[in-house]
Write a protein that binds this DNA or RNA. Structure first.
Lengths: 212, 212
DNA sequence: TTATAACCGAACACATTGTTCCGAAACAAG
DNA sequence: CTTGTTTCGGAACAATGTGTTCGGTTATAA
């Protein structure tokens, strides 16, 4: 009577790692790919319709036409689905070699351009209707990028480290604020214009602070 | 058998208005004041312990030692309690005459100072563990302040209006990012240092953009 | 073809929300 | 102090959402 069969969905998978450091997988079984994609797409649709907070797991499985037990065989949470969607956006955050000499904040333009192409997904994940978790993680990643870039561009001795933190926070905060309003459609501008505005406000202050 | 008696808690109240434009009241009945304050304090405590999202209404009424029906006689939501707490912080946002000549972004230092005094409350309401609604509203209010300040300091013709929006977004984004990390204790600095860092990064870019 | 794994869906226990009701207690006014 | 009013407490309730279990069915890969 004891059920010794281990019930595992998503078995023979190869490991991949997303921007969160979580392990994600690419399946060999067609059913698995089908189910996961259906749920992910359903989440994006529902976020754009009602906002992330308002989306329930019941909504998801109805929209995706997936059984309840099936859902929980693949994802632990609503949030798990949210994060799984980030695989597609992760490449975007991986650019920025950080040690290449050049103009400051080189990540800006490519990032705006990439988000422009993925408008729909970006809006769902990064906009106000999306959960704040994605933005928070993006902020974190961007902070290390900016920090490394500044340390590479200027001799580390010229500034006390805690002052550097303050500066990084300012720069990242300005960028993320621009980005959020842009994907939400509250700002109408081309990627080039966004990049120009960001750099115009932020760069002079940074360079003066480093007395270049 | 019909209950014609209108059951209203919180009756003979004088109107007040908070930063959200909602009407709040100061009661003459001691029981009412006692109940409201108990719930508000309970929320602050619980936010600092578990974070806003994790706090349930049941948690609130247990911590505050208040009956369930009593709670719903005073507040509609968890969020309603959150907003009601803002009365204490509202004065902080009301400063900034906006039309007085002087250094740019004069709101910055007083705001950091005031938040430093109200450390505990500020952390609960504005920090990561607090709901994002408060931050969102603060951002909105600050945006109009910054916008008015820039329009007052520079002739409106010198800049296209949509470019102004971009700049305002940058400035507000930088400030709010600093503020959030500061109240969360991720940044250790005095109010004066916070103000200096904010102005150092942001001011040069703004003044150059307006070719002063 | 066949063994296996994924799927469906119902049923379940549990938590949370917001409402209703009534007796008890606190309050303010006279 | 008495009296009429208002608030409080707390149980009970329906409604909704979550996450788990399990037996039967179907799709998949080899």
């Amino acid at each position: 009577m004891v059920n010794k069969q281990i019930r595992r969905a998503v078995p023979y998978w190869t490991e991949v790692e997303d921007v969160f450091g979580n392990s994600r997988r690419g399946s060999s079984d067609r059913r698995v790919r089908r189910t996961r994609k259906a749920v992910q797409q359903a989440l994006v649709e529902l976020i754009l319709e009602k906002g992330y907070e308002a989306v329930t797991v019941t909504d998801l499985i109805n929209r995706a036409n997936v059984g309840r037990s099936t859902f929980y065989a693949h994802f632990t949470d609503k949030q798990d689905v949210l994060f799984s969607n980030l695989d597609e956006l992760s490449s975007l955050l991986r650019l920025a070699p950080a040690s290449r000499p050049g103009p400051l904040f080189a990540f800006s333009l490519p990032m705006f351009e990439h988000l422009h192409e993925q408008r729909r997904l970006a809006r769902a994940l990064l906009g106000r209707r999306g959960g704040s978790a994605v933005m928070a993680r993006g902020e974190q990643i961007l902070a290390t990028i900016v920090r490394d870039e500044l340390l590479a561009a200027f001799p580390p001795r010229s500034t006390p480290p805690d002052s550097l933190d303050l500066m990084v926070t300012c720069v990242v905060g300005a960028f993320m604020a621009l980005l959020r309003k842009w994907v939400d459609g509250e700002l109408t501008a081309t990627p080039a214009e966004m990049d120009a505005a960001f750099r115009a406000v932020v760069t002079p202050g940074v360079e003066i602070a480093f007395r270049r």
